[in-house]
């Protein structure tokens, strides 16, 4: 029983990370219709922004987090101007391949600047362990879950309670109509990328201390985030969260009770099954006629 609780606790922490990555992915998709294959590299970049500021730049944690997120916001702007704007009139598939190309650039640029050795990113809660029902968990993992929950709340407030967020949703639904209504479409689109980059940054900063920072961490995260998005429902925020938690739990419980060698088949099998039985996912897609 203690083992089961332990697995659930770890699965939820793992799932939170997937969920965070999935949210960044969903925001971009909902706002711009782009399936961002570089989503995993965004998270990797977030971790390395942290490494650059905190581990190498020796900034105190709070300041380091701020600086890393500012760097990620700047990256979001750059991405919007240099990649999205030139490609936005292209067919969706061209943009997808564009994100693949930029993913290759990001991964190799970070390899060039940071080298291939992994880094250990500090956490404000380093070394603190908690006991929950006989299960051991790091305080940091609890923080990951808490921060994820908090962010979800904030994003919901942004999208449904502020003029800015409502504008973003309007652009997501119909760019032309939003333009006719006098909304600053480009600025709102740019904001979506900035938001996605910063969320990826937070995900990166949170998982750095859990997993070590490593140039190649991006793609595996993206893959699980894709599965999470599908299971939860493409373009749906609550879906991304539910999907992320499901994938995290399925990974650990599957490895424990079914087979550790075939455990990833469970997550991806579930994803394919969901697609076949309920393609709109658990929560359904909010924006139709995309892609």
């Amino acid at each position: 029983m203690a083992d089961f609780i332990q697995l659930c606790v770890n699965g939820l922490a793992l799932g939170s990370v997937y969920a965070l990555a999935a949210i960044g992915f969903v925001i971009v998709y909902a706002a711009t219709g782009v399936v961002n294959f570089a989503a995993g590299q965004f998270v990797m970049l977030g971790t390395f922004a942290g490494v650059g500021m905190i581990t190498q730049g020796a900034l105190p944690l709070g300041l380091g987090y701020g600086a890393a997120l500012a760097a990620m916001a700047l990256f979001g702007v750059l991405f919007f101007v240099l990649v999205y704007l030139p490609l936005r009139k292209s067919p969706v598939v061209t943009i997808i391949i564009g994100t693949v190309a930029i993913g290759i650039v990001m991964q190799n640029a970070v390899l060039l600047s940071f080298g291939s050795w992994p880094f250990r990113l500090p956490s404000p809660l380093d070394g603190i362990m908690l006991q929950i029902g006989g299960a051991m968990i790091t305080a940091h993992a609890v923080m990951v879950v808490a921060v994820t929950a908090l962010l979800i709340g904030l994003i919901w407030l942004l999208f449904y309670r502020t003029a800015l967020g409502i504008g973003m949703r309007a652009v997501a639904q119909d760019v032309e109509a939003a333009r006719l209504m006098g909304l600053p479409v480009n600025r709102l689109l740019a904001l979506s990328w900035v938001l996605a980059a910063m969320l990826a940054g937070i995900a990166g900063l949170l998982l750095g201390p859990m997993w070590f920072a490593d140039v190649n961490m991006g793609d595996p995260i993206a893959l699980k985030a894709f599965a999470a998005t599908i299971i939860g429902g493409f373009g749906s925020l609550p879906g991304a969260i539910a999907g992320g938690l499901f994938v995290g739990l399925a990974e650990l419980l599957g490895a424990s009770y079914v087979s550790s060698a075939y455990k990833d088949l469970i997550a991806f099998g579930a994803m394919i099954l969901f697609l076949l039985v309920r393609p709109q996912g658990v929560f359904g897609e909010r924006i139709q006629d995309r892609g």
Partner: peptide, 28 residues
């Protein structure tokens, strides 16, 4: 027959999942 009821990115990600599954099976 089952998969092609899906369209666009749904099909893309379903087939991506299939590819991942293929790798897992061949590796094990």
């Amino acid at each position: 027959y089952p998969l092609l009821r899906l369209r666009g990115h749904y099909l893309a990600l379903a087939t991506l999942g299939l590819n991942v599954s293929f790798t897992i099976v061949t590796a094990n």
